[in-house]
């Protein structure tokens, strides 16, 4: 198992190399001069030149890239142009918010998609199946920011059942955390739930026609038991792959959802940094997001072996 994980990590090296190139190249495509922005409008050309030298902007791109990468590898993501705080510090402060939001969204999407997918997939063509399929298409088409606003309108403004904005750490007050995370997680998780439902439905239809389902029935096992044990574990194999892909989308979706629900996470930071043109911070957010995404996909790969023994490392 350790070997397997090491192999996976090694395979990531070229990928991360290309990713680092892409992230770094953001500096190169940026129109205008970061030193000019940093120095402010009243700066003299000498001041700007000094800042340029200071930031190493006069060096060739390759040297800048090497310096930046070396910094990233040491955990030094630079300093925020806006607040002068180290980027990594700010990111680590906000990471738990985004992680708990994304995790809650995944849990929520599984809670919806597993029952819905199983019900639809074991009775294809039935009324229940049609309702689920239509619901899934609608769930995919609804923009998440709009859904979030509607939820705020209904549950916070009109009924006052749940808070509209804010975030309380899980470690501080679990009940308050849940109340704050419920609407954002629903908002973020709905499209993932829709995709997973469609996927699971298709996989269940496929699996239910397999010979081993008949074998399980021939052993005297009840239909429900066969569905939940024998069919679901096999149908989960493609679902796990999709879940890995969805983790990426969910991380992206936090940008919008955190904005709506006023959650101090990475996504909100990314948007705020765009308006302050805080490039090191944006690069930091992207690096951190890719790091999390890659880590999640590694976890997915590992869990894949449990569902599908054929790919399990010997």
């Amino acid at each position: 198992m350790l070997n397997f994980i090491l192999q996976r990590l090694l395979a990531l090296v070229p990928l991360l190399f290309i990713v680092s190139l892409l992230v770094f190249s953001l500096v190169l495509i940026i129109p205008g001069d970061p030193a000019y922005m940093l120095a402010g409008e009243d700066a003299t050309p000498e001041e700007i030149a000094a800042i340029r030298t200071d930031m190493g902007l006069d060096d060739p791109a390759l040297v800048q890239y090497a310096r930046w990468t070396a910094g990233v590898l040491r955990g030094d993501l630079g300093t925020s142009l806006f607040s002068d705080q180290p980027v990594l510090e700010v990111l680590l402060e906000r990471l738990p918010v985004t992680i708990s939001l994304a995790a809650a969204a995944i849990v929520f999407s599984l809670l919806i998609s597993i029952p819905a997918g199983v019900i639809a997939g074991t009775r294809p063509g039935s009324i229940a199946d049609r309702v689920v399929t239509l619901g899934a298409s609608t769930g995919l088409a609804i923009p998440n920011f709009w859904l979030g606003l509607m939820l705020i309108l209904i549950f916070a403004i009109w009924n006052g059942w749940l808070p509209a904005t804010g975030y309380v750490p899980l470690s501080e007050n679990p009940a308050a955390w849940l109340r704050h995370i419920l609407l954002p997680a629903f908002t973020l998780g709905l499209s993932a739930a829709a995709i997973l439902t469609r996927q699971l439905r298709g996989a269940m239809i496929d699996v239910m026609n397999q010979d081993y389902i008949r074998t399980a029935r021939a052993k005297g096992l009840a239909w429900r038991f066969v569905v939940l044990k024998h069919a679901l574990k096999n149908a989960a194999i493609p679902m796990v792959t999709i879940l890995g892909l969805q983790a990426n989308y969910l991380l992206g979706g936090t940008v919008i959802v955190e904005q709506i629900f006023g959650m101090p996470g990475l996504g909100q930071l990314a948007v705020a940094s765009v308006f302050t043109r805080d490039l090191p911070m944006i690069q930091g957010v992207v690096v951190m997001a890719v790091f999390v995404a890659v880590f999640v996909n590694l976890l997915v790969d590992i869990s894949y072996g449990w569902f599908n023994p054929k790919v399990r490392p010997q």
Binding site: D211, Y212, K219, G220, H230, P309
Partner: peptide, 29 residues
């Protein structure tokens, strides 16, 4: 009834199928 049949299947009457590759569940030992 289905529960009565389930008591008989696998206990009194058992079955072996043609394709052992597909008739055994790949996800369980």
């Amino acid at each position: 009834s289905e529960p009565q049949l389930e008591d008989i299947r696998g206990d009194d009457i058992a079955m072996v199928f043609q394709e052992s590759m597909t008739s055994l569940n790949p996800a369980f030992t």
